[in-house]
């Protein structure tokens, strides 16, 4: 069925500083699916996530991306967020001087404004924050901390999933979310992602290793190599990669 397509990428080429990184990526994601994008370092995995989120430093030179039939490439990063895209960063950015509360309040109300809604009442906002922080086991005092400043690797990734829970995206892109996580933090993050998943949504899990995919089980697995998807299969491909490595696929 064509109408259950959530994301359609066709012939995507993208460059950074005149160096071509993505060299013709095709990818179709249906509602309810979790896709894993695996690949060696330098294959273009992070570029794919950055291009989906609209990072200005990347230039799309050919191809198209449609999210629920809308032309994603015509939208600014914030418009993409309003349309339902969320990128969990491999390296979450520190924003000195801006508290998590202020950051999330601005973000939530921007989403609401994008949908023509009034800002959330202060009390309702704080209640939502408390609930979602508890969901990823973040201590309440983090509400007053500056965004990611002085956070451990695990705290940064939990903060990403907290933000994801607050914004409730249609398409979550997790870029190397497992890097720098111990097993407990990995489990909290993965449980969070699984709990937020519904048949109406989709997720792209970008990772180098099998580890995260033991917790977030993909429906489809792609191997990205030298800017192209060279292999697509079911979840059994994860074990094959673990056994043979990327070079022998």
């Amino acid at each position: 069925m064509a109408n259950d397509i959530l994301l359609k990428i066709e012939g995507l080429h993208a460059s950074v500083e005149d160096k071509e990184i993505l060299k013709g990526v095709d990818l179709t994601i249906r509602k309810g699916e979790i896709h894993a994008v695996m690949g060696p370092n330098g294959a273009g995995k992070s570029t794919l996530s950055a291009v989906l989120a609209g990072k200005p430093q990347f230039t799309v030179t050919a191809g198209s991306i449609e999210l629920l039939g809308q032309d994603l490439l015509a939208m600014s990063p914030e418009e993409r967020a309003w349309a339902g895209i969320f990128l969990s960063f491999q390296y979450p950015v520190e924003i000195p001087g801006v508290t998590i509360t202020n950051f999330m309040k601005t973000a939530v109300n921007a989403h609401r404004a994008g949908k023509g809604l009034e800002p959330l009442k202060a009390g309702d906002f704080l209640k939502l924050m408390r609930e979602k922080m508890a969901f990823v086991q973040m201590k309440p005092e983090f509400a007053k901390r500056e965004v990611n400043v002085g956070f451990s690797g695990g705290e940064k990734k939990r903060n990403e999933i907290f933000q994801m829970a607050m914004l409730d995206p249609t398409l979550a892109i997790l870029d190397e979310t497992d890097s720098g996580l111990d097993v407990d933090a990995l489990r909290i993050v993965a449980n969070g992602v699984n709990a937020l998943h519904t048949p109406e949504k989709a997720a792209i899990v970008i990772t180098h290793y099998q580890r995260l995919l033991d917790y977030i089980v993909p429906d489809v697995v792609h191997v990205l190599k030298d800017g192209k998807i060279v292999k697509t299969a079911g979840r059994e491909l994860v074990a094959e990669i673990e056994e043979k490595g990327y070079d022998n696929l």
Partner: peptide, 21 residues
């Protein structure tokens, strides 16, 4: 870009940066 990826407009992002500065 981090703020915009959360739906914060570029204008609001700049204001937040300057206020915190």
């Amino acid at each position: 870009f981090y703020m915009r990826s959360r739906g914060i407009t570029l204008e609001d992002a700049k204001v937040l940066q300057m206020i915190s500065f």
